[in-house]
Amino acid sequence: MGKICCILDSDESFAVRICACFNKKHVLPFSVQAFSDMDAYMSCAQNNEVELLIVDESLYEEARHVPAGQIIRLCEQPMLMEGEADACIVKFQASDSIIRDVLGVYTGRLMPAACAKTADKAEIVCIYSPNGYCGKTTLSLALAHIKGRERKVLYINLEEFSALGTAAGNLSDVLYYYHVNSKMCGGKIMSLISTGNGFDYIPPAACAKDIPDTDAETIIGLTEAVILSGGYEMVIIDVGSLVKEPWKLLEYSDKILIPSPDSPHRQRRVKEFEKFMYTSGYGDTMEKVCMVDIVGDDSVFRDGSINYACLAGSVYAKAVGSIDV
């Protein structure tokens, strides 16, 4: 018998919709199934271990007698009555909000042992440059898109102004949840992760001040927490210029990609960076650096955004293909 999560609601379309959202986001370490019929649910419960039951309040009294690791009720007006031990959350809200609330109740059970990967098995790739406007973010996204075909990849952008847009759940929210409870934040953070173009990503910070106000140790701890909860095989970190002590983040990584400088002035910046690293005790870290030759390729852009359909034959794809990651 395998562990499962069951959503039980007399409104079949509602149950199926919420179930699809959970399975799409992969925020739970087991499959989610939807039921609108009590008999069908009981039959499933006899053959599987129901780790989590999310049930409409109209079916709660009948369903609560069927063994389940934890029960969460879907209610119009959540309140815990005397003698009731099972948590309740608002039913009529956005799907992402339901997922967030469910994980808020359940997150203490999201243990690393349930994940396919552990933090020490995931590959951490930092994209960094002491130069601005050098193709760093485009290289990062190309790497995430191409490697996402083979592995489960997460992209994290640490630029204060990324021009990538943001979302209701973004890096600012992720940092907040991590600061509130770093040991039990995995579930909440996973509910904020978006998916697109072949890889997962945390939408960039909504507040630029969150980047310089966050130290490298926090970014590293956050990365570890996300890897453990999401089972990621590769994390690509786009390191911005305002990241505090970025060399600590580079030291943590397995590979560092730096776009090759295309002018004497940019070359001097890279030389100064290299000198600092060697004289500051980060010589071993510099052994992980790979300079990437990229030339601007306008064919990968459309209306100011990356056209992922054109990445395959671009100079970025060729550059990524030549890197041992």
Rank of each mutant, 00 (worst) to 15 (best):
Y232E: 01
E51R: 15
N23F: 04
G169E: 05
E251N: 15
E251Q: 15
S10G: 10
K244S: 07
Q46W: 02
K147M: 12
K188W: 00
F14C: 04
Y201F: 15
F276V: 12
S263H: 01
D262S: 12
Q33M: 12
K24G: 01
S95I: 04
L141K: 15
K117E: 08
P212K: 13
Y282S: 03
A116Q: 14
V243T: 04
C75W: 01
S95L: 14
G2V: 13
F301V: 07
K275V: 05
C134H: 05
P246V: 07
V243K: 00
M234K: 11
I98L: 10
K318A: 07
L257S: 04
K188R: 13
I219H: 06
L103K: 08
A20P: 00
L59A: 10
V90F: 07
M291S: 13
G313A: 08
M81V: 14
G281M: 03
R64K: 14
R151E: 03
L8H: 08
D298R: 15
D39W: 07
A45T: 09
A142T: 14
A163G: 12
A85D: 07
Y128C: 04
S13F: 01
A144S: 15
I124A: 04
V295E: 14
A309T: 13
P246D: 03
I4W: 03
D56K: 11
V153I: 12
F92I: 06
D254L: 08
C134D: 10
A85V: 12
D254K: 10
I4C: 09
T195S: 13
A168M: 14
P29N: 10
C134S: 15
R151S: 09
A312C: 03
K136E: 01
S305V: 13
S194W: 05
L143Y: 01
C134K: 11
C310F: 02
V16C: 09
L139A: 06
I306N: 06
A114H: 15
D210S: 11
D101V: 03
A85L: 12
A142Y: 04
A317Y: 00
C5N: 08
A312Y: 05
S36L: 06
C207F: 11
F14M: 06
I71F: 00
L171T: 12
G296S: 12
P29M: 08
P203C: 09
G231H: 07
E76F: 04
A87D: 02
E49L: 09
D200S: 15
V226A: 04
S97V: 12
A87S: 08
D238T: 12
G169D: 10
I236H: 01
G165E: 07
A34N: 06
V315D: 12
S191I: 05
D324Q: 15
E123W: 08
M111Y: 10
L249M: 13
K244R: 13
G108A: 13
I146D: 00
R266W: 00
C207Q: 13
A206K: 13
L110Q: 05
A40C: 11
